[in-house]
C-alpha cells in the first residue's frame, strides 16, 4: 500500500503587497515568484524509511509543508493513506516534526506533551503513561518539569520527536531530524528511526546529511532545484560497479614499486607499507602476483563502491550542465 503519493506537485511562492503569502487566496502581484517545486511525483510504500535528499533550497521542506497542510500546492495533488490532504482521520495517523522546531516556551515539557495529546482526544490515563514512555524514549525524563524556555537545541529536537510519536502514528514525517545535533544525538535519532521501522511504521524524512541518510534509508528521492532527479532504492541508485581497489602491500623492492607506478592510479609509501590504488581488476591480479613473486606480503585489499555523496555530486553536476 502506498502511504504517501504525490502527483505533479508544484509550488510557486509569490510575495504579496503585505509581504504575506496567501496561498489559495490568489490576491497576487506576479512580480516576485520563486518556483520551489516542479512536477514532483513520488510514492512512499508502507513500512519503509524514505529519505528526501537534496541541498538547501531543493524543495524538501516545501514538499513536507504541502503534505502537512501548512502550505497549499499551486498545482498537482497529494494523498496520504489514499485520502486527500487535510483529512482529520489521516492526521490522527501521522506524526510530524518540523525543521528546527520551536514550541510554546511558557509551557513545561510535560504540559506541552499533555496539551498536544489532548488535541488527539487521548483519554487522560492513556496520555499519562504515553508521555512517560516517550520522555523515557527520547531521554528527557529529567526535564519533564522544566519550562521549554530553558531547553537546549538538542532537547527541543527530542521533545519535538516525542510530540510526533504521541498518537502512535503509522506514518512519521521528520524534517531534518538530525540537523543541529551532535554525533551522539544523531546516532540516537537514527536508532529511533530504525526502531520505528521495526515497529512497522513508515518514516519519511528529509536530510542534507547524506552519510546519515545512506545508513538507514530503504529508498531515497533526490531533489535538486525543485525537481526530482532520481528516486529508488539504494542499490538501484548507486552503481554496484567497483570504482577502485585499494591494495596495501609490504616488503616490496624498489624496482617493483617503480614498475607499479606505471600501472597504478597512485602509489603511496609509508615507512613499511605501500598503498596502491588500482582501477582494473586485472591490474590487481597482476600486482598481487608480482608482489608474491618478489617475496612481498599482501596486507589488505579493499574494493571501493560509490557512496551516496559521490553519486549526488555526479547527479548535481550533470543537472548543472
Amino acid at each position: 500500500m502506498k502511504v504517501v503519493e504525490t502527483f505533479n506537485l508544484s509550488k510557486t511562492y509569490v510575495q504579496d503587497v503585505l509581504g504575506v503569502e496567501y496561498g489559495r487566496l490568489k490576491i497576487r502581484l506576479r512580480d516576485r515568484q520563486v518556483d520551489a517545486l516542479k512536477d514532483l511525483t513520488l510514492a512512499v510504500e508502507q513500512g519503509e524509511i524514505f529519505g528526501l535528499l537534496g541541498p538547501n533550497g531543493a524543495g524538501k521542506t516545501t514538499t513536507i509543508k504541502i503534505l502537512m497542510g501548512i502550505h497549499f500546492a499551486t498545482e498537482g495533488q497529494a494523498r496520504l493513506f489514499g485520502r486527500p490532504l487535510g483529512d482529520l482521520e489521516v492526521k490522527r495517523r501521522i506524526g510530524f516534526l518540523p525543521e528546527n522546531p520551536y514550541f510554546y516556551d511558557y509551557l513545561k515539557g510535560w504540559e506541552f506533551l499533555e496539551f498536544y495529546g489532548r488535541l488527539y482526544d487521548m483519554p487522560h490515563r492513556l496520555l499519562r503513561t504515553r508521555i512517560e514512555e516517550l520522555l523515557d524514549l527520547v531521554g528527557l525524563s529529567h526535564a519533564a518539569n522544566l519550562p521549554l524556555k530553558g531547553y537546549s537545541k538538542g532537547m527541543n529536537q527530542r521533545i519535538g520527536l516525542a510530540q510526533a510519536l504521541l498518537n502512535d502514528p503509522r506514518l512519521v514525517i521528520l524534517d531534518e531530524p538530525q540537523s543541529g545535533l551532535d554525533p551522539l544525538g544523531r546516532k540516537e535519532v537514527r536508532d529511533i528511526i530504525l526502531r520505528l521501522r521495526k515497529e512497522g511504521r513508515t518514516v519519511l524524512f528529509s536530510s542534507h546529511i547524506l552519510s546519515d541518510a545512506e545508513m538507514i534509508c530503504d529508498r531515497v528521492g533526490i531533489l535538486f532545484k525543485g525537481k526530482l532527479i532520481d528516486c529508488g532504492s539504494m542499490s538501484e541508485l548507486l552503481s554496484t560497479r567497483v570504482l577502485q581497489y585499494e591494495l596495501v602491500v609490504e616488503g616490496v623492492s624498489h624496482e617493483t614499486l617503480q614498475a607499479f607506478e606505471g600501472v597504478a592510479e597512485s602509489v603511496l609509501n609509508s615507512d613499511m607499507q605501500t598503498l596502491l590504488i588500482l582501477k582494473e581488476e586485472t591490474d590487481v591480479q597482476a600486482a598481487i602476483a608480482r608482489t608474491v613473486e618478489t617475496g612481498g606480503k599482501i596486507v589488505s585489499l579493499t574494493p571501493r563502491t560509490e557512496t551516496l555523496e559521490q553519486y549526488f555530486i555526479r547527479q548535481v553536476k550533470g543537472e548543472g550542465k
Partner: peptide, 14 residues
Amino acid sequence: ERKTIYTIVSKPVH
C-alpha cells in the same frame, strides 16, 4: 512567526 503552528496543523485540528 515561531512556527508553533506547524505542529498544531499536523494534529487532527481544523
